[in-house]
Design a protein around this nucleic acid. Sequence first.
RNA 1: GGACAGGUGGCCGAGUGGCCGAAGGCGCUGGUUUGCUAAACCGGUAUACGCGCAAAACGCGUAUCGCGGGUUCGAAUCCCGCCCUGUCCUCCA
Length: 467
Amino acid sequence: MIDPKALRENPTKFRQGAADKGVVIDFDRLIALDERRRAVMTDLESRRAEQGRLGKETGPKMGQLKGKLKAAMGAEAAAISAELAELERKPQSLKAQIAALELELASVEPAWRELLMTVPQPPAADVPKGTGAQDNKELRRWNPKGFDSTKSFEAQRGFKPKTHLELVRDLKLADFERGVKMSGTRHYVLTGMGMRLHQAVLRYALDFMADKRGFTPMGVPVIVREECMMGTGFFPFGREQAYHIEESKRGNAHDLFLTGTGEVGLMGLHADEILSASDLPRTYCTLSTCFRREAGASGKDTAGLYRIHQFDKVEQVVVCQALESESRTWHAHMMESVEMILQSLGLPYRLLQCCTGDLGMKNEDMVDIECWMPGRGDDGADGRPTGDWGETHSASRLGDYQCRRLNLRYRDGEGRTQFAYALNNTVIASPRVLIPILEMHQQKDGSVEIPAPLRVHCGGATHLRPA
RNA sequence: GGACAGGUGGCCGAGUGGCCGAAGGCGCUGGUUUGCUAAACCGGUAUACGCGCAAAACGCGUAUCGCGGGUUCGAAUCCCGCCCUGUCCUCCA
């Protein structure tokens, strides 16, 4: 959520930001609603003040009169009744006015709020303008020794690479048929060493963040209330991407939702809290199962482990003070963590600065990290894929947009409360990251060499071999 | 899933129609004093929104006693609905 005061003071900034993101918002209506809302509030409040004053002045007297009225008779009673009616006239008319204003506010306020929630966070000034992924700018890339992602796999390694689908089949690492049998399309079963490799990479990543980067590991709910999804900014727009658990039909008041990322649980932790400045930054990581409906992705990446409904992810978030410099420092730190991990796994990768059109609602800045996947991409002359980049990570700076929605604040040095800044980034998402691991480390004999850091979690094995 | 009890400020806790944004205590904090530790005394100590101000400070106002609605000139207090928490029973990795 954006700051409504900031919108009032500088509407152009938000109009431009929405335009840069390719989002259409009826700002005129929003501004009109805001003005009406404030006018009604001012009026309402002054009448309530008047009501309170009157109540204090004449209220006790009315109480007394009512007491007397019970005991009085005849002409005396009539006189008291008349006096009472006179006393009640003004507060009663005030009451009617207040009720009318309240009614209006009850329609204006929610409409205003709903529209306000849809205003996207304006991109940071240095984010390149663009309309979609094709306008993203590569920041840098890295290659392991002896491999260059601009040259063909075969030329460098001396054999044609298998795709991860073929490797998974030949090495018996996953069973798609039975996954689909149980749960439908885009489901899978990890089998044997496939499951071990999956767990190994997750465990390695979580340990890395805790041991080498000082992040606090957390186990958080993956079943959350709607407020959590709203607060973290995944709703209302991402609603059709989330699995919905209907509980209200069973008598409970709240439906629940499965989270698509550990970010929801980590950021929801401190919702509605006021932290002290010394509590910041909070640096958390979690390992959680992620659920995504992938609505609208029909036909894309339908085969294999790339686009699936359920996966596991180690996620990192930072909640820091509301300073641009601090946000940027942590952003770099989070990306550095990922680069360290990818380098240790020997995976070529590149960093892409996302353009304004590719940021999404809540981000002011985002860098995607893509790994080189030899089994992806267009087919070459031999009918085999020529390799392509595939997104494995996404590092976002959210400014105060998310914490404002979550009502997550801290008390700064001067004792003022402020909305904190938030950031998040993938640490590792598996099984997707198994794709580059398998494809990059495959050997001519059909085996796959397990990257050194993962072996300890694979029972000491150095290779995956066909049975 | 069943039964009962209960939700008041950072915490504890008083408060059954106007004098209550709310006693008292604890905590925190500023000060005074006692040559240390500690104590005593005095003061301060919620959040949001609106208006004023160029803005901060500040001033004024409104709302908030779990949430929503109702009764009333007036609700922490009365009525209705809901949510949540605790305890016991049941079930369970």
